[in-house]
Write a protein that binds this DNA or RNA. Structure first.
Length: 554
RNA sequence: CGGGGCGUAGCGCAGCCUGGUUUAGCGCACCUGCCUUGGGAGCAGGGGGUCGGAGGUUCAAAUCCUCUCGCCCCGACCA
């Protein structure tokens, strides 16, 4: 491919509304343009990257026996109504009507449609298992599209769905997917972790996420380097360090106008880790008192899984329900439900006294209050692993894939049944598995760039080699350039030739920006001695090579 | 949806506070010519703007006021 024939609109300056590295570089290097919030145009260079990612996806999916099919993006409402998601999902679903007034929606995922198909076409245990996948567009009306291509409203996803006769079969195909995913991300040149993830409010099911470490990510995971425990921070458990046990007697202390943990801590000269932080929340119109240690924060998602939807109580409500101003509330003598973080189970603490301007010191769990114990704090770096007691690390990550055990959540309502060996009708046991190719590309950039531009992993680069003839008006230069170009193409190497009549600086800058892994630089001076240069984009190492020997290196 | 920021040429920005010396400007990009060819060259000439939109105040609005649309960031959300 010749540079002059390809749409590669590079930008010298950083577009003002881009912040994430991958966003800036994809814009500057001429890979994408933005049409509207969360809606992108993919230019020729990015299509080449995607094609390479798709190829890897197909190879690895086919290798585990998955079959590619293609489902519509436009769906009739009825299918979604049957599983109830038509009603459960809110504004995130794009909805529309056809000309006859029939309700339709744009697919944000394809469990319903795949199950619809399975319900019609799978009848016998002899047909099982089946794994179907597609690489198709999804549409979600995201509340906040962000970070360029990382969170968009329209995006392509590789999604596969497995149908089995039982849990055992599901487990097997789930593991096959996990292995395939590891191969895929490894082949794409990414650093990644497979972590436990929140299966959502549906309960029961297991799920894992594949996470590429990057500061541009929206998620955080905790990692234990000693036993390998890894989980999304939304459900990750951890053990906070235990402070030395104090042998305080129960006593009320006057703490005038001292409300926050920090204020009381300073006032009493007692560290926050000896405090019980009491937070009143309202769930289902019922007040619940939640307790975390003074140096911890309440993890709303974790609490959400225990008590369902909730909101913090208003100041006025605290006074009405507990009879004392927020800031002086505590767990003892409370009659309402109490949920406390496990790290408060042992020890002697300070908390509000349920009396204006007073706190109590020497409060003991179980003796002075009863609670349901759960891990409800936000984990912090350096806390201990629940599995092996080693210090944990926290890293920011981009979610690049997930795998889900669905069970019969979709097969039941959509009546996707099969007949087993005994002629008994049973629901298909399902799993679903997703990968976002655009996120792979963006994560690859986030993990591989320098001040001059992108450094693509070889496997997903838009081209393998870029040839840079410095002076296109020099006949000898062009002769050699074209010879190498042809030779590489014959070897099935994807090569971009910068045939533009531009100054050397412009070509070098653009080549570095675009990030093709290998550059062959053809300059007049070197050529006089029979040499060209081969430059490694990543290491910037340049080697002089005899013109005749170039092709043998590839 | 809450909080913050920003909309002036393709891109990056100045001008706005304090309305009129602005025929709306600068850098880059673009077009023509010369020159140049190893890290985004130089000189000369040139094209490109309903100042996001609507309404209002005023003799006069990019500039002040009201409404509205769009985009970005933080948070909530993310089946």
């Amino acid at each position: 491919m010749f540079f002059s024939k390809m749409l590669i609109p590079t930008l010298r300056e950083v577009p003002s509304d881009a912040e994430a590295v991958s966003h800036i570089l994809m814009l500057r290097a001429g890979y994408i343009r933005q049409l509207a919030a969360g809606i992108y145009i993919y230019l020729p260079l990015s299509l080449r990257v995607f094609d390479r990612i798709y190829k890897i996806l197909r190879e690895e999916m086919n290798a585990i026996g998955a079959q590619e099919i293609s489902l519509p993006i436009l769906h009739p409402a009825e299918v979604w109504q049957e599983t109830g998601r038509w009603y459960e999902i809110g504004d995130e679903m794009f909805r529309l009507k056809d000309r006859t007034g029939r309700d339709m929606c744009l697919g944000m995922t394809h469990e319903e449609i795949m199950t619809w198909l399975a319900a019609r076409e799978i009848r016998s245990y002899r047909d099982l298992p089946q794994v179907w996948y597609q690489i198709e567009t999804k549409l979600r009306d995201e509340a906040r599209p962000k970070s360029g291509v990382l969170r968009t409203r329209e995006f392509i996803m590789k999604d596969s769905y497995s149908f089995d006769k039982d849990e055992e079969g599901l487990e097997k195909i789930y593991q096959l997917h996990a292995e395939a995913y590891k191969k895929i991300f490894t082949r794409c040149g990414l650093k990644f972790y497979m972590v436990q993830s929140d299966p959502g409010m549906m309960g029961g099911a297991t799920s894992h996420e594949f996470m590429a470490p990057s500061s541009a990510g929206e998620d955080e995971v905790i990692l234990c380097s000693s036993c390998g425990y890894s989980a999304n921070i939304e459900l990750a458990k951890s053990i906070p360090h235990k402070p030395e046990n104090m042998d305080w007697e129960f006593e009320e202390i006057h703490t005038p106008e001292k409300r926050t943990v920090q204020e009381v801590s300073n006032f009493l000269k007692i560290k926050p880790e000896y405090f019980i932080k009491s937070i009143l929340v309202i769930s289902n119109n019922t007040p619940i008192l939640t307790l975390v240690r003074g140096d911890q924060e309440l993890h709303e998602k974790k609490l959400n899984r225990i008590i369902g939807k909730f909101r913090p109580a208003h100041k006025q409500e605290v006074k009405e329900i507990l009879g004392v101003e927020a800031g002086f509330i505590g767990p003892h003598n409370q009659k309402i439900r109490i949920i406390a973080d496990s790290c408060l189970k042992e020890g002697v603490f300070v908390s509000g006294a349920n009396k204006q301007h007073y706190h109590v010191k020497g409060i003991r769990p179980d003796k002075d209050f009863k609670a349901e114990w759960h891990d409800i704090h936000i984990p912090k770096e350096g806390e201990l692993c629940v599995e092996c007691n080693s210090p944990i690390k926290i890293e920011r990550v981009i979610e690049i894939g997930n795998i889900f055990k669905l069970g019969t959540k979709y097969s039941m309502p959509l009546k996707a049944f099969y007949l087993d060996e005994k002629g008994q009708e049973k629901p298909l046991v399902m799993g679903s598995y997703g990968i976002g190719p655009a996120r792979i590309a963006a994560a690859a950039i986030e993990q591989n760039y320098d001040k001059d531009g992108i450094i693509w992993p070889k496997s997903i680069a838009p081209f393998d080699v870029e040839i840079l003839p410095i002076n296109v008006n020099d006949i000898k230069t062009m002769e050699v350039a074209e010879k190498i170009y042809k030779g590489l193409k014959e070897k099935n190497i994807d090569v971009l030739m910068d045939d533009r009549n531009e100054r050397a600086g412009v070509k070098f800058k653009d080549a570095d920006l675009i990030g093709i892994p290998v550059h062959i630089i053809i300059g007049e001076k070197n050529l006089k001695e029979g040499f060209v240069e081969i430059k490694d984009r990543k290491t910037r190492e340049v080697t002089k090579v005899k013109v005749e020997e170039v092709l043998s290196l590839f």
